[in-house]
Write a protein that binds this DNA or RNA. Structure first.
Lengths: 336, 336
DNA sequence: TTGTACGCGTTATCAA
DNA sequence: TTGATAACGCGTACAA
């Protein structure tokens, strides 16, 4: 794999390296047409491709950014990442996607690796467990934007949704349809997003003067959700409506229902956080609390770019509203 | 964002750059314990992080590979990419994921971009439309592996499944359940995968001495599939069984069925290529022709790594078998 | 309009 | 056991 360098092109064209460099950077103003053509021909013949690596080293800019998602299996992460990648490709910036797998150690490793690779900036779905590291990033002035989650006491701008309000809204919806026992099912409360949702849950229950039953708040790893649901539904007064924290939880609920012969929309109502691509196609169609993932990704990308280009060093958090998409799975009216 | 370099560490520790480099590369054999400690302390205090970029320039190896998928929305691509990334991360190699979006121009652009970035190798879901480019890659000795598709006349090893045989198997299954009019629905026949499946379809129909109806072979862009299905089902003798070419086609079929009040498993039977994550959870559960996507990704990654490390320059194509997962959507017995 | 020379942060070679 | 020096491939003053 013989590499052809600028020097080779220069020799072939009978000019100096700098002239070739000029050519590549399209500074034709002071270049004779002949030289220009000679160089073009030489490049063509040799099949020369500039080495971005060397250029990056010199320019101290790699035109690469890193995305660290908490859990790549989560559909929301995928959508957001896609948006970020799309945005940056328009600016000739490549994204490297890393999956921290909800593991703070992996997150740390990736952050350090990406910095070593000199990426120009980072968009992180933080595990929220590496405070010192986040603070280091801020101090060293590294361009970073947080996604989906917020970390207190760290001055990094974040893009997220109004989790609390969205949860209140879906509960309001359930109440209007006559539900009196509503349960929320989520993964462990290690991150702000889930905490906010449970806070919204508590608030809504309280404000509606309903009984707050702690057993109705399931916070468990996905692998344990099925058994927890079994316990919940074995109670004398099981819930009549469930709120699923994300698409992964939703699949667990589906599995639970299937195994236990419960029909969604009949035996219990259901609403799910996240965009489920097939939500409107299954029977019954599933009510979702959709996050504007594409806009969120785009926004974060914009913010990061402005940080990279130093246009703006003091960015505000951005909070999006969720959209409640009512479908059949939550439309049953409960008459006690 | 002041960058601290090896020179800074060297100065602080009172040694030369070369010694620091030795230290970083763990060549401690001929190094006094004191120097070692001095350097370690200096690195610690300055918060020094080696610059991989400079290292890569020198070593002519970036520890990055590129993945170019044809269509990132396709679930199969995601699974394969995940497997590739997982494999390479174990070897401290980062993957850059690019979405060619089924566009040969984009594919070309990405290949060139990734080469300019000096990635160590490429795994490509080829559009099959850039023959000259593929040939160039081979000639320049660039490590490349094709995924999912095969390109004739180009000496690049590929990892794929036995599309033709898998299609024959599903048709055999349908026939056993009494179907006499089976249709295959796929995207346009621009790539080997789809061509092989349609070939398998033709072969199976012929061998079973059934009537080969060209109208029963739908090859259309996803956006046109719905209307094509409408035409198909408006015929006097519509098919009683459908084979969907992938998950995107499947969603179109779901949509079509919903809009026209047709019930899957009742009004027609269905089998789908690809792993649909929720296939067993919906009603009726969907019969799938699963590709071993994770193994395929892993295999391709292994092959690429061996090419990169020059262990092996003549690799064979690898063909995996699909697994037929019979579920309710195809279990109805047709009695004419 | 073009060429020379140096710097970017490493690593490799070879002396010391 | 350590250090000086030359690469790696490109960009850019500054000189010519």
């Amino acid at each position: 794999m013989k590499k052809v360098t600028m020097a080779d092109v220069a020799k072939k064209a009978g000019v100096s390296k700098s002239t070739v460099s000029q050519f590549l950077n399209k500074r034709f103003e002071y270049m004779s047409v002949e030289t220009r053509e000679k160089i073009a021909k030489a490049i063509e013949q040799l099949g020369y491709k500039p080495n971005y690596l060397a250029r990056s080293l010199k320019q101290k800019r790699t035109s690469m950014i890193g995305i660290i998602v908490a859990n790549i299996v989560h559909h929301f992460s995928t959508e957001v990442s896609r948006a970020i990648e799309d945005f940056f490709i328009e600016h000739d910036i490549h994204a490297i996607l890393c999956n921290a797998d909800n593991d703070p150690k992996k997150e740390r490793r990736y952050i350090e690796m990406l910095q070593a690779k000199q990426v120009d900036g980072l968009i992180i779905f933080p595990t929220e467990q590496n405070l010192d590291l986040y603070k280091n990033l801020v101090e060293s002035g590294y361009p970073v934007v947080f996604m989906d989650r917020k970390v207190d006491d760290v001055n990094i701008p974040s893009v997220k949704v109004n989790n609390s309000e969205a949860t209140e809204a879906i509960i309001q919806h359930f109440i209007e349809y006559g539900h009196e026992r509503i349960s929320i099912v989520t993964q462990p409360l290690t991150i702000s997003t889930r905490i906010e949702r449970v806070n919204g849950y508590r608030k809504a229950i309280k404000e509606n003067e309903m009984e707050l039953n702690e057993d109705f708040i399931i916070r468990a790893e996905t692998k344990d959700i099925n058994s927890q649901l079994k316990l919940l539904f074995a109670k004398k007064n099981p819930p009549t409506a469930l709120i699923a924290g994300n698409d992964l939880v939703f699949l667990e609920i589906l599995e639970f229902a299937k195994e236990n012969g419960l029909k969604i929309g009949i035996d219990f109502s259901l609403a799910v956080f996240d965009n489920i691509p097939f939500a409107h196609l299954v029977t019954p169609a599933v009510t979702t609390i959709a996050q504007p993932s594409y806009e969120m990704g785009e926004k974060a990308a914009q913010m990061l770019l402005s940080l990279i280009e130093k246009e703006n060093s003091e960015l505000q958090d951005v909070v999006y509203n969720c959209q409640l998409l009512i479908r059949d799975s939550s439309r049953i009216v409960r008459t006690k």
